[in-house]
């Protein structure tokens, strides 16, 4: 099951990556929208339909879990599985970055 999830989530969509990245700490949907907006200097603004859809999908797949509700806002945090998948994705992006700079695994 976990292997299948890893294949589904890696490579990840940009939205998925930022949401899972932010959820390394407790946050609700709108927190994430604002945080991502700040992090990317306004280049990435996650719309509410996309946010809700991604959160519910990730919760269903066990990547994040619901912590508590504050004033109708659901607060989530990444599970160990979610963090593991995020690490895989980070490694993939690091490899992409190194390769894009002309570094290859053979040359090491």
């Amino acid at each position: 099951m976990e292997e299948k999830l890893k294949r589904v989530y890696v490579p990840m969509t940009e939205t998925g990556f930022y949401i899972l990245f932010c959820l390394q700490e407790e946050m609700h949907g709108y927190n994430i929208v604002q945080r991502v907006k700040d992090m990317t200097d306004g280049e990435i603004v996650i719309s509410p339909g996309t946010m809700y859809g991604t959160l519910s999908k990730m919760e269903k797949d066990g990547l994040i879990s619901f912590i508590r509700e504050e004033e109708k806002r659901k607060i989530y945090q990444s599970t160990p599985l979610g963090t593991e998948i995020l690490q895989l994705e980070v490694k993939r992006i690091e490899r992409l970055y190194r390769n894009s700079k002309g570094e290859t695994a053979v040359g090491k």
Binding site: G29, Y30, V33, S47, P48, G49, M51, Y52, E69, E71, K72, R73, K74
Partner: peptide, 11 residues
């Protein structure tokens, strides 16, 4: 439903 609507309202 409430939390769903809240995300939209916040945005």
């Amino acid at each position: 439903k409430d939390s769903y609507i809240q995300i939209f309202t916040d945005c």
